[in-house]
Design a protein around this nucleic acid. Sequence first.
DNA 1: TAATTTTTCGTGCACGGTAACGGAAAAATA
DNA 2: TATTTTTCCGTTACCGTGCACGAAAAATTA
Lengths: 345, 345
Amino acid sequence: MGKVTIKDVARASGVSKGTVDRVLHGRDGVSAKSREKILKVIDELGFEPNVYASLLASHKSRSVAVILPEFTPGEFWELYEAGIERAVKTVSPLNIEVVRESYNQYELESFRAACRRAMKNNPAGVVIAPLFKAETSLFTAELREKGIPYVFVDTKIEEDGYLSSYGMPMYRSGYLCADILNFCKPCNEILVVRIERDKHRQSDPTVGRREGFRDFIAENAPECTVHNVFIDPKDPEDVARRLGAFFSEHPGVRHIATFNSRIHLIVPFLEKSGIKDLAVVGFDNLPANIEALRKGLVRVLITQHPDEQAACAIRDLSEYIVLKKAPAKRDNFVHMDILTRYNAD
Amino acid sequence: MGKVTIKDVARASGVSKGTVDRVLHGRDGVSAKSREKILKVIDELGFEPNVYASLLASHKSRSVAVILPEFTPGEFWELYEAGIERAVKTVSPLNIEVVRESYNQYELESFRAACRRAMKNNPAGVVIAPLFKAETSLFTAELREKGIPYVFVDTKIEEDGYLSSYGMPMYRSGYLCADILNFCKPCNEILVVRIERDKHRQSDPTVGRREGFRDFIAENAPECTVHNVFIDPKDPEDVARRLGAFFSEHPGVRHIATFNSRIHLIVPFLEKSGIKDLAVVGFDNLPANIEALRKGLVRVLITQHPDEQAACAIRDLSEYIVLKKAPAKRDNFVHMDILTRYNAD
DNA sequence: TAATTTTTCGTGCACGGTAACGGAAAAATA
DNA sequence: TATTTTTCCGTTACCGTGCACGAAAAATTA
């Protein structure tokens, strides 16, 4: 019943609704005294703008640019798509259009080009996965200058000015990974499979995860040995070769972890080798990983809901664009899901 | 761009928008000729009413009744509240009001009364947790007769006519629980603590969970013994007495499970007894359970997001009420989350 | 044919919010 | 002090739809 409208706010603060509208949208032309008074009244009355009335009145169509790495089917970055599509559905009646720009995550120039393409559209907001830290800084500086709000997904960069961020707490996730491996009986040896395209990449997104993993072991199982095996994801035979060599040298190892989403790449080896009772933990719910989970070859996957990240990011931006309302929480960690074969749906 | 409005339809059919509105809502007072013409134009122009404008203009407020068990703070059924509140926020601008009716889950008559109270309000939709199966059947028959859509949460009853349902797959969750206990080293003995108010209750909601648990053990650890200890939740000293007796008789048992949300009740005993290296698995993210997780006294919680269930249920209903749009999926199983101390947030 | 009833329809305000327009008051300048 | 500029804010016309009011048109009756 007691819906508070801007008319109520206007009356209660002794101004007209035009003025209330001005402070709601942060436009200028309002004295400090009035603004303060109005904000107080808004707070006291618990006013919340009616989104529908709002977009009915202001119908300019705006666009949100989503800048993510490109992907081939089945890759990690594809997981964002589902959330983007969900979000598109909910915001398109608000006259907000979503424009995707993708880049090659291993080529800086490609990232630059994607940013430039995004800016051409004159977007009202930007969602971005900041794989290239330094370059992203430059880009966000430009966004700030133009007053375009932006949201980080996957990871964030340390700076001020972003509207919100979504991601997994990487350190925590590494810690959790080690905890799960260590779950019942403490383990003496763990094999960490590093399936990375570029061992010496400047900014490896999984570095925090490795630290969390290392710290858990140091604190809870200091006697445990951690072996690293590096594998080239582009060479399909590298897996069998290197893992084969490893297991002939260390036949007793029963714990395996990876720190990125590529655990599925070792599945063929596991199937062929016939080693039993392995505790294998990986990350991210790629279809191939889920499949491995179902088969019992991977014991646990830790996932971070990229789709949710995307959906939330777009939601935050549209709320900000339509209502100039900042999201409730700025830094959001999505829940780390623990998936086993019985709760993978 | 080319959004067609009522005014366009009116102009194209040579009448006023009032007349168009009349045919849109099936009100009378329109000549057969005009009606026909208008319908033709609507079809040709592909006119679709603007839901938001419509909602803004129409003053009829509709209500959704939510019929759930009553609770004292910290109890399982309180977890639904958060989702209800979230949903209220999103649907209240649609002039949809949410009315809660609660009942005593152990008294049939109380459930009946709650249903009757709900009907008095002449609700446009109903969310219901069908703890009393038979009685719920009678109630939903009445709803169907009156054309009122309804959604099940927590569990559903087998019938046709509900709009959608949300719940945890109980059998699966029991299976998962046993799997987690059995995670690394197979266990030989498991203590199942049954903290139930009424041992002989007709429809124990956790019965499916018990079956899943039993089946996992039978299939994967047939040599394992399962001990049941029954505890009266109303008698605070019963826990210490019975568990004390159990552990003095079976000092080697290290695996504990419960099947409802009351695992926190055994925490004081665990703390005092000082038994180490226990693998304790329970259900549901009650604050007290989370607390026990943090302290390391409970190893894993399996949760079902009651808040999400409530939010989805209300969303489905309002979409149906406002747009007559049926939800995408009818039977929905919420994801079973595995919570450990490192991902409980 | 005139008067009356009934049918059919146009008009205008409301919903809650947006934003352009222009005027009054305050501040700055002459 | 008079004039100009700036700051601040009220007014107003929408957005697309719902609905009440009353008037015109058609049908009925006298």
